[in-house]
Design a protein around this nucleic acid. Structure first.
Lengths: 191, 191
DNA sequence: ACCTGAACACCGTTCAAGT
DNA sequence: ACCTGAACACCGTTCAAGT
């Protein structure tokens, strides 16, 4: 961490900004991931960030991409397309739940078309390879992702709520797997 | 609309606040649904709202409940449980898409346990009636709702983006129905 | 009990000016 | 090109004080 006020040898890069944003996200969550916090952590004025990103949303889009990129990506899976889809969904879930509010961030940025598109493209490819038509594969991929993000968002919201003293009915640990299985079984019917 | 500064005969009620919040949401969307805007529209200081709601989230939870309550609820459907589930999902989608950012709001409030729980309860009941065990029905209901909200959120985000000039690949109008069918077919496998 | 008025501690974004 | 410093136009929330 550079001391605030220290003159940097290197100019700021987008990658450096994204790195710092991820560190702040990990520490304090999305509501406190402010332009001022990022600037302060980098030893720079918040206005300097606008030289590298058009606005906060563009910055968060890059953060969403990085959350996905840093997530696990188990390769060369044994078994059929259903096992591969299950595995990829699990990886995506692990990626977004690795950071507080990660599901919220990635889901929003994906919906807005400003980041986090890789999981959609990968699942589309996987499903086309599995034999789905190019017309229906995007719909199936989105259905899968809506579940993955929705479930993760739920989980992370409950983490917040638990800290505020609100309690929820206990959720089975197999809940995620069951949901993914439901959607995959449904997709199977499209073949 | 009461003129600002007019002394009201009746004291403010929660229902009146929620009504006004919905009108503002319909007009300007969630980012501009501020405590100040609600207060101004009611001819009252923003601080007065805290006498009726603990905070903004509690107020938005009540708004989410009202969005669902005001949505359509087609009754006594012909056909099997799958038709009934399809119909209920369509109604929920219509309810949340009737207001700008409605999907975002209802999804968030539901995840936080602060509102919008009725659709979940209804779908649970419907699925238990269909023959699902009480262990797996909530998981199936959540899977369905994650898709419905995720899809609606996507649509409404694209509405925003279109206004900012961003364009997306065209989505088939049957996309929602196909997604619901995928999940319902998957749930069928649990019977 | 219900509401006012003012304050507190913040936000994202812009922009002239420096180097 | 890259960044500073200061401002602009906002937020949600709190709280003493009024009625």
């Amino acid at each position: 961490m550079p001391a605030p006020g220290s003159s940097r040898a290197q100019p700021l890069t987008r990658a450096h900004v994204v790195d710092t944003a991820l560190a702040i996200l990990a520490g304090v969550g999305l509501p406190d991931l402010t332009m001022r916090a990022i600037g302060t952590e980098l030893g720079v004025q918040q206005s300097a960030l606008y030289h590298h990103f058009a606005n906060k949303q563009a910055l968060l889009g890059a953060v969403a991409d990085e959350i996905i990129a840093r997530g696990p990506r188990r390769i060369s899976p044994p078994g059929d397309w259903q096992d591969r889809a299950r595995q990829r969904c699990g990886d995506i879930r692990d990626a977004v739940t690795a950071y507080p509010d990660g599901a919220d961030l990635v889901m929003s940025m994906w919906a807005f078309g400003m980041g986090g598109n890789a999981p959609f493209v990968e699942l589309c490819d996987l499903l086309v390879e599995a034999g789905l038509t190019v017309e229906v594969a995007p719909t199936a991929a989105r259905t899968l992702l809506h579940f993955v993000y929705g479930h993760a968002y739920d989980e992370q919201s409950h983490d917040h709520a638990a800290r505020s003293g609100i309690t929820f009915g206990q959720r089975a640990p197999t809940d995620f797997d069951t949901g993914v299985d439901i959607v995959i079984a449904g997709i199977k019917g499209l073949l």
